[in-house]
């Protein structure tokens, strides 16, 4: 196996293009899972200075190599992101796993991705010699370049989440996150995202249409749940069936809305 530590993003990109079986190494928790990486070329991103959390004038920028534990402990990131990060697998893993790796690995049982979607996070990435910024949603579908950072431009968005797992040491079964803004007393820019339901991160299209424009107290659980349930097609596993996953989603929606209504009372 070839191993490289590029000094610049351009060099990293060049190295990647030279081999079809080249992989970027960040925290390694996905790449090194069960046996050594089966890569021909390993491009270690550690010299690119991609770690760290930086407060922006408006928002926060999280370097791609920032570990999930650093996010969990940070006072600079929005509380829901820190809270959800603290639930990610175990501390042993959180100390190595990075936010960039989580995004690039499209980890389908992630506590981080749904939250980032609900914060309408953007991904800054490097591709073809240029840095570009796109929505996380878009990056996940296009999967292009080296992730440089994740930007949350509006940390004041209301973001709530719930998680359910079978055992504490287990991966999550379902993670549900809801995020939005309030403008003129009405919901705007809503997002609903779920993890553990499909093989990929689920981002609602229909439910957000339902939420946008409504007052918080006008949201009926049953209506929202019905829409989400129509959109999702859960996959079951040996521990939790798809039917149970549907029930968990319903439970999450109820509890998140109850929390929101409780706070607005």
């Amino acid at each position: 196996m070839d191993y490289f530590v590029p000094k610049s993003l351009s060099e990293a990109e060049k190295l990647k293009k030279q081999s079809a079986r080249a992989f970027y190494l960040a925290g390694g928790t996905i790449l090194n899972w069960k046996g050594s990486p089966r890569a021909e070329r390993l491009i270690d991103l550690k010299a690119l200075k991609l770690e760290g959390i930086k407060k922006l004038k408006k928002g926060v920028e999280i370097g791609a190599m920032t570990t999930i534990q650093e996010i969990a402990e940070s006072g600079d990131v929005p509380a829901s992101l820190a809270g959800a990060s603290a639930l990610f697998t175990s501390r042993n893993v959180r100390n190595m796993a990075t936010v960039g790796g989580n995004i690039a690995g499209k980890f389908f049982i992630s506590n981080i991705l749904p939250i980032l979607v609900c914060y309408k996070a953007k991904v800054k990435y490097f591709s073809n010699g240029k840095k570009k910024t796109v929505s996380l949603d878009k990056w996940l579908s296009e999967n292009e370049g080296i992730i440089v950072s994740v930007i949350i431009e509006n940390p004041d968005r209301i973001v709530k989440f719930r998680e359910e797992k079978v055992a504490a040491s287990d991966f999550l079964s379902v993670f549900t996150s809801v995020g939005y803004l309030i403008a003129g007393g009405r919901i705007r820019d809503a997002e609903i995202s779920l993890s553990g339901i499909h093989r990929r991160l689920f981002i609602s299209k229909e439910a957000v249409k339902f939420l946008n424009g409504k007052k918080q107290r006008e949201i009926f659980v049953s209506a929202l749940n019905e829409i989400v349930q129509k959109e999702i097609k859960p996959i079951g596993d040996v521990k939790v069936s798809k039917e149970v996953k549907r029930r968990i989603v319903e439970e999450h929606i109820i509890n998140i809305l109850s929390e929101i209504k409780g706070e607005t009372r």
Partner: peptide
């Protein structure tokens, strides 16, 4: 475990942080 990062019995402190040695490779 079979290098799943699940049991944590192989843990070390890397610069003071608890990590699973089964999920790390040499350059790390």
């Amino acid at each position: 475990c079979d290098e799943e990062g699940k049991c944590g019995n192989c843990a070390i402190l890397l610069d003071g942080k608890l990590v699973n040695s089964c999920m790390l490779i040499a350059p790390q």
